[in-house]
């Protein structure tokens, strides 16, 4: 076996895994705060990619202005969804809320297709193009940039979570909503902020994913891999999303290269099954994964 080739595959896998991890963090934020399994996360990611296209190509803005705008659009979208769809349903059967997010996902995919058509589109080039070598191994520059951006954002989230007062409010709300209210935490506000941050993050991840592989109305399936990532990491663990994301990225890349693309999903799901048998809460989770 050629070690250099293996290293290049692994690097590409970790690059993809970082984006899984980033989107996984978004998923976990929402689950922690509101206990909602948000299956629309892949479509919200897609929305970020199209919003970027709209701002950059449609309105002709510089990509470096379109990027923050796309992220902000994701945040606004999260705020609206939480207030109008999710909050009225809190306390209801988790399956109903779960179904609402599935519905939201298909509406988004349909709307995007109406507006931009069904064909895959390329995003305007804006990431650096100089090839990157780690040792002798080649790494696509866009993938490296995606990895670095994801690492910074995840690091920021972990630090906020660990050291800020807002992090304490989120952890308290996640642990015991009644007790969180009883110490003066504005619990509904925690819900809002979690959705805003999570959807903004997913939208940002969508721009990165789109910059690497293009965008299409079906790119929401990215969310399926993210679902596997967070189930493996533990639905309520940020660190779990990080480790799970890198792991799945790596496994998919190796399986795709050495077994063939059609084996990617099989291997991922086999891994998921084995892990759930050993650790039903995921690697780092504390909560039993809801039976849906």
């Amino acid at each position: 076996m050629d070690m250099l080739f293996l290293a290049e595959v692994a690097l590409a896998g970790l690059g993809a895994g970082a984006l899984y991890a980033l989107t996984g963090v978004a998923f976990v934020l929402i689950y922690k705060a509101t206990r909602v399994v948000n299956l629309a996360i892949g479509e919200i990611l897609m929305l970020g990619g199209y919003a970027f296209l709209g701002f950059a190509a449609g309105l002709g803005l510089s990509p470096w202005i379109a990027l923050p705008l796309a992220i902000a659009a994701g945040g606004v979208f999260g705020w609206v969804v939480e207030r109008s769809l999710i909050r009225p349903m809190l306390g209801e059967n988790p399956i109903s809320v779960f179904m609402v997010t599935i519905g939201l996902g298909s509406i988004l995919a349909g709307a995007v297709q109406l507006a931009w058509g069904a064909d895959p589109l390329r995003l305007p080039e804006f990431l650096p193009g100089t090839p990157i070598f780690i040792g002798d191994a080649y790494l696509a520059p866009k993938v490296a940039f995606g990895f670095a951006a994801a690492a910074v954002v995840i690091g920021l989230f972990l630090a906020l979570f660990r050291f800020s007062r807002g992090g304490v409010a989120l952890k308290a709300t996640a642990a015991d909503q009644g007790a969180a209210y009883s110490v003066g935490i504005d619990v509904p506000r925690v819900f809002s902020i979690a959705w805003i941050l999570a959807c903004a993050t997913a939208a940002g991840a969508g721009v990165l994913v789109g910059a690497i592989g293009g965008i299409s109305p079906t790119m929401g399936v990215f969310g399926l891999s993210v679902l596997v990532v967070v189930i493996i990491g533990g639905l309520d663990s940020l660190a779990g999303a990080l480790v799970g994301g890198l792991l799945i990225g790596l496994v998919e890349a190796l399986a795709g290269t050495f077994l063939g693309g059609e084996f990617k999903l099989v291997v991922t799901f086999a891994l998921l099954l084995v892990l759930l048998m050993v650790r039903p809460y995921g690697l780092f989770g504390t909560h039993e994964i809801e039976r849906l």
């Binding site: 409010a169 952890k171 642990a175 007790a179 009883s182 003066g184 935490i185 504005d186 504390t286």
Partner: peptide, 26 residues
């Protein structure tokens, strides 16, 4: 301020973070 039955402290948080959580009351 309601100190609820069964204490309802945040077990996964440190003692200090439990107190920090209560600063939102201010």
């Amino acid at each position: 301020f309601h100190v609820m039955e069964g204490r309802r402290i945040f077990e996964d948080l440190t003692v200090e973070e439990n107190l920090t959580a209560a600063t939102f009351a201010l």
